[in-house]
């Protein structure tokens, strides 16, 4: 297993957002996460990336207990993350955003980082925007950069938080094509998404989260046909 989360608990005051969740992801696998708003999906990512610390529970990654590591250490150990709302380094160019990620997340020298940045820009279609200030870009391009920057850290595990949200249908298709290429290279992914058909086109496994608990976990189509999932997520009474 590349990632194992055991009995994760997290509360904000009286509000329990993660209630003893356990799951794991195999190397090379793509896990899709679905769930209503406020179900605790992003919190789950925060617990894996270290932005939020666990109240109790253990996170193992790549054979190492990373429960107490800081976010930057988790990134360096191979967890790349994109945020739901893109956080570009707004006053830096696209190219500089990527070399920063490669230099620090990927722990490379600057010349090595330049090569990685170029490669990522080419594959993400950002080359023509290389010298543009990241803060001045359109939403689609900022989302692309968000993904590209996570890739530039050379992650073993990629956490994608609603990167298709707010995109038009052709844009979402383009993104899925990119993700398929990344998957083909063997990168493990966890993808939170409300654009269900995009998610289903790539996920090997689907997990549904509700009120901080795991509702279903398994083969995508059987999870989608689960009456409880239909009721909670799609509002269809069986």
């Amino acid at each position: 297993m590349l990632l194992t989360v055991e009995n994760a608990h997290k509360s904000y005051g009286a509000l329990a957002v993660t209630k003893g969740m356990s799951f794991s992801v195999e190397e090379g696998e793509t896990l899709g996460i679905l769930g209503p708003n406020g179900a605790g999906k992003t919190t789950l990512f925060n617990l894996i990336s270290g932005d939020v610390s666990l109240d109790s529970g253990i996170v193992h990654f790549n054979g190492q207990n990373i429960t107490t590591l800081a976010p930057f250490q988790r990134c360096q150990s191979g967890i790349g993350r994109s945020y739901q709302v893109p956080h570009p380094f707004g006053n830096m160019t696209v190219f500089e955003n990527l070399i920063t990620a490669a230099c620090f997340g990927g722990q490379m020298s600057e010349p090595e980082a330049y090569d990685v940045a170029e490669e990522v820009m080419n594959s993400m279609g950002l080359t023509s925007l290389a010298n543009q200030q990241a803060g001045s870009m359109t939403l689609l391009n900022r989302k692309r950069l968000e993904l590209a920057r996570a890739l530039a850290t050379r992650p073993k595990l990629l956490l994608l938080d609603e990167i298709a949200g707010g995109l038009t249908e052709p844009e979402a298709q383009e993104l899925v094509t990119e993700l398929k290429k990344i998957k083909a290279k063997g990168t493990t992914m966890i993808w939170i998404e409300h654009v269900v058909h995009a998610l289903l086109s790539i996920a090997d496994r689907l997990m549904v989260v509700n009120f901080g608990e795991k509702l279903a976990d398994g083969e995508p189509m059987s999870v989608m046909n689960d009456p409880e999932v239909k009721r909670v997520y799609m509002g269809i009474e069986a």
Binding site: A70, F72, C75, H87, G90, N97, T100, F104, R149
Partner: peptide, 14 residues
């Protein structure tokens, strides 16, 4: 410069 622009993103990028 990365920290100046976004601390959260900087730490998530290593």
């Amino acid at each position: 410069q990365a920290i100046r622009d976004s601390e959260v993103a900087a730490s998530s990028q290593g």
